[in-house]
Computed example of a mutant assay.
Amino acid sequence: MMARRDRGVALLIVLWGCTLLAIMLGGFAALARTEGLQARYQYAQTRAHYAAEAGVMRAIEGLQGRDIGSRWIADGRSYLFEFDDAKVTITIVDEDGKVDLNAASGDVLTGLFKAAGATDDKARSLSSAIQDWRRPGDAASPNGAKKPQYDAAGVGYGPRNGPFATVEEARMVLGMDAKTWSAVAPALTIWSGRERPNSEHAQALALAAIPGLGRAGADAILAKRGQADGGVVAGGNGVTHTIRAEAILDDGTRSSLTSTIRLRGIRSGNQPYAVLRWREGDAE
């Protein structure tokens, strides 16, 4: 009787051991499968990332081709490029077609905010606040904002009283709300040095900011630009550009890069471009 009970206990222990072993093996199999999926995902993401990087390099080459007539045009049009089984879509925007936070006139800034949907009063106020941010001194301009106005708003900081160091710094300007910022951000720059955007390269919002042009004039310029014999001539680009490259693999894996670069020309011993800003993904 005792021997039979001992055999039953031994059998129960063996069954429990087999169950535990099966659970452990199942866990290891699930872990291995998860790690395999992660490895494949990371590999695909890496391929897509470097395909997007290749797109940026292809854009730089396209902007500096020896044949001026075949150079890529930096007015926001799309170029397609295939690299390592990835389809890459590239757009290039010349920074001289944007509104320069450090150089734009008050009329251009006001026009930009009005074109973005701000009321006349808010557009003038934001324009003055931007000019006060970049202007030395403590006295606010009419409708503008210096340190006392920022203190009264309780934001805990004041204007730089000097040039904007980044485009994103404009988010801190008194009165700049999230909706307005989202609308105007793609049209802003700190790298053109121009009082008004270059109409040959400017996008719709920046065009509409040019005094006397407005939406109707901007639409007319864009319509002409879209024609085969439009007014944009290849090779007429500036030197500073924002390039966006989006790569998509056959399995749908996607990666995007946005880089602002300054061309230096192709000369022996000279780096042909300098990177001013580099962002991965779609975040502004």
Rank of each mutant, 00 (worst) to 15 (best):
M1E: 13
M2Y: 13
A3N: 09
R4L: 14
G8M: 12
L11N: 00
L11V: 07
L11P: 03
L11R: 00
L15Y: 04
G17R: 06
L20E: 08
L21T: 10
M24N: 05
F28A: 15
A29R: 02
A30N: 09
E35V: 06
E35L: 15
G36D: 02
L37G: 10
L37N: 13
R40T: 12
R40L: 15
Q42P: 07
A44W: 00
Q45G: 12
T46P: 08
T46W: 14
T46A: 15
A48Y: 00
A48T: 01
Y50R: 06
Y50G: 05
A54I: 00
V56P: 07
R58F: 08
R58L: 13
E61T: 11
S70K: 11
W72D: 00
W72V: 01
A74F: 03
R77N: 05
R77A: 05
Y79C: 03
F81P: 09
F81M: 09
A86E: 06
K87H: 14
V88A: 01
I90F: 03
I90K: 08
D94V: 04
D94E: 09
G97M: 02
D100G: 05
L101N: 02
A103C: 03
A103D: 02
G106R: 10
D107W: 08
V108I: 04
L109P: 04
T110N: 12
F113C: 13
F113T: 11
K114T: 13
D120S: 12
D120A: 14
D120Y: 07
K122C: 01
S125W: 03
S125H: 01
S127C: 05
S127N: 02
W133L: 04
G137W: 09
D138L: 14
A140G: 10
A140Q: 10
S141V: 13
N143C: 03
N143M: 09
K146W: 04
K147Q: 13
P148W: 05
P148F: 01
P148G: 00
D151Y: 00
A153W: 01
R160D: 14
G162N: 01
V167M: 06
E168F: 07
A170W: 02
A170E: 09
R171H: 11
M172C: 10
G175T: 02
D177K: 10
K179N: 13
T180V: 12
W181V: 01
S182G: 12
S182P: 02
A185N: 14
A187S: 11
L188Q: 01
G193W: 01
R194W: 10
E195R: 15
H201F: 14
A202F: 09
A204M: 11
A206P: 08
L207K: 08
L207A: 00
I210C: 05
P211N: 04
L213A: 01
R215P: 03
R215F: 06
G217C: 05
D219V: 06
A220F: 06
L222E: 11
A223Y: 11
R225K: 04
D229Y: 10
G230P: 12
A234R: 11
V239A: 13
T240C: 11
H241V: 15
T242F: 06
R244M: 04
E246I: 08
A247K: 02
R254S: 09
S256I: 15
T258M: 05
T260S: 03
I261S: 04
L263R: 00
R264I: 06
R264G: 15
R267W: 14
G269F: 05
R277W: 11
R277P: 07
W278T: 07
W278Q: 09
